[in-house]
Design a binder for these strands. Structure first.
Length: 273
DNA sequence: CCTCTATGGCGAA
DNA sequence: TCGCCCTAGAGGC
C-alpha cells in the first residue's frame, strides 16, 4: 500500500537492517541493472523517505532514489534470501558477517542514482510531509487557501502535501465533513489545521501498523453485521455510511476514484463550511 | 484460464 | 485527457 506511511516504514526497516553495512546489489531481471552494478559492494549509510519517495544513501556520495508507483513492493527480511522468483528488479543482500538481511524490489516506477541536483530539485518540488517532525503545514495552507481547485485534487498533489494518496484523501475528507469538490479557497484555516493534525495521527498509526485504518472504534461495526470496516468511504461506494447510513458515492477526481458520503460531506454551494 | 482493478505519476497530445 | 509503465490479487467463466 504505497502511500507515505508505507515508504516511511520501508525506510525504517532498511535503516535497521542495512545502515553501516556493505551490500551486494543485483538486478536479476535486468531492468535496474545499471543502478545495481554501480552500487554493488558499497556500504549503505542510511535510508530515509519523503512523501512517497525513498532514498538510500550509499558511501561515496551516491544516492539511490526509489519510487514504488502504484504496484511496487520492496520486501525486506532479516535472513538470507532464497533464489529470486518472478520479476525481482533489484536485490540487495548484506555482504558482511552475521545478521543477514535482504531486500527485493518489484514493480517500481523508479530505481535510479540521483545526482545532488536531482535530489535538490525533488525536495524543492515536494510539499510538507505529515510524517516528518520538521514539516511546515502552513506551506500547504498557502497553496490551498489561494486555489480554486477542489480540495480532493489538492490533497493528491504531491507539491501541496507529500505522501497522501487516494485512501488517505478519501478518509481524511470524510472525517472532516468536507466534500472532495470543495474549492481549496473555501476552506478555513482552522479547518485545514485540524485536517493536518488528523493526517499526522492517522499516518503515524499507519507507520506503526503497516495498514490504513481510519475508522473510530465506535463505528467499526456500526452496521452490526460483524464485519470490521477499516475505512469510512474508500472503496465503499454503494454501501451505507458508517455514521449516517446514506449510500456512499464515488466519482473520478484528479484521475482517481473519489469516495464520499453525500450527507456527512455535503456539496459545496458557495458558502463557507 | 481470462479480465479487471489498484494505495502513482510521467510525458505526449 | 489519454496512454503507458509495471505487478499481484480478486473475481468471473
Amino acid at each position: 500500500m504505497p502511500e507515505g506511511h508505507t515508504l516511511r516504514r520501508l525506510a525504517d526497516s532498511l535503516q535497521t537492517a542495512f545502515a553501516g553495512r556493505p551490500v551486494r546489489t543485483s538486478s536479476p531481471q535486468g531492468r535496474f541493472a545499471e543502478s545495481a552494478a554501480l552500487l554493488d559492494g558499497s556500504r549503505v549509510l542510511a535510508a530515509d523517505s519523503l512523501g512517497k519517495h525513498l532514498f538510500v544513501d550509499f558511501e561515496d556520495d551516491r544516492l539511490l532514489h526509489v519510487h514504488l508507483g502504484l504496484y511496487g513492493k520492496f520486501h525486506v527480511a532479516r535472513r538470507l534470501p532464497d533464489p529470486p522468483v518472478g520479476q525481482v528488479r533489484l536485490r540487495m543482500v548484506t555482504a558482511d558477517d552475521g545478521d543477514p538481511a535482504y531486500g527485493d524490489l518489484r514493480g517500481a516506477t523508479a530505481c535510479e542514482l540521483f545526482t545532488p541536483e536531482q535530489h535538490r530539485a525533488l525536495l524543492e518540488r515536494l510539499g510538507p510531509d505529515p510524517l516528518r517532525v520538521d514539516a511546515e503545514p502552513l506551506r500547504a495552507w498557502e497553496r490551498i487557501r489561494r486555489s480554486r481547485a477542489p480540495i480532493g485534487g489538492l490533497l493528491m498533489d504531491q507539491s501541496v502535501v507529500a505522501g497522501v494518496g487516494n485512501v488517505y484523501r478519501a478518509e481524511i475528507l470524510f472525517r472532516h465533513g468536507l466534500h472532495p469538490l470543495r474549492p481549496g479557497l473555501a476552506l478555513r484555516r482552522a479547518q485545514f489545521l485540524a485536517l493536518w493534525a488528523d493526517l499526522v495521527v492517522l499516518m503515524q498509526a499507519g507507520v506503526r501498523t503497516g495498514r490504513i485504518d481510519t475508522v473510530r472504534p465506535e463505528h467499526v461495526d456500526r452496521l452490526g453485521d460483524g464485519v470490521r470496516r477499516h475505512s469510512y468511504v474508500y472503496k465503499r461506494d454503494g454501501e451505507p455510511c458508517l455514521v449516517c447510513g446514506s449510500i456512499v458515492r464515488t466519482e473520478e477526481l484528479a484521475a482517481r476514484n473519489s469516495f464520499w458520503c453525500p450527507r456527512c460531506q455535503p456539496a459545496y454551494r458557495g458558502r463557507a463550511a
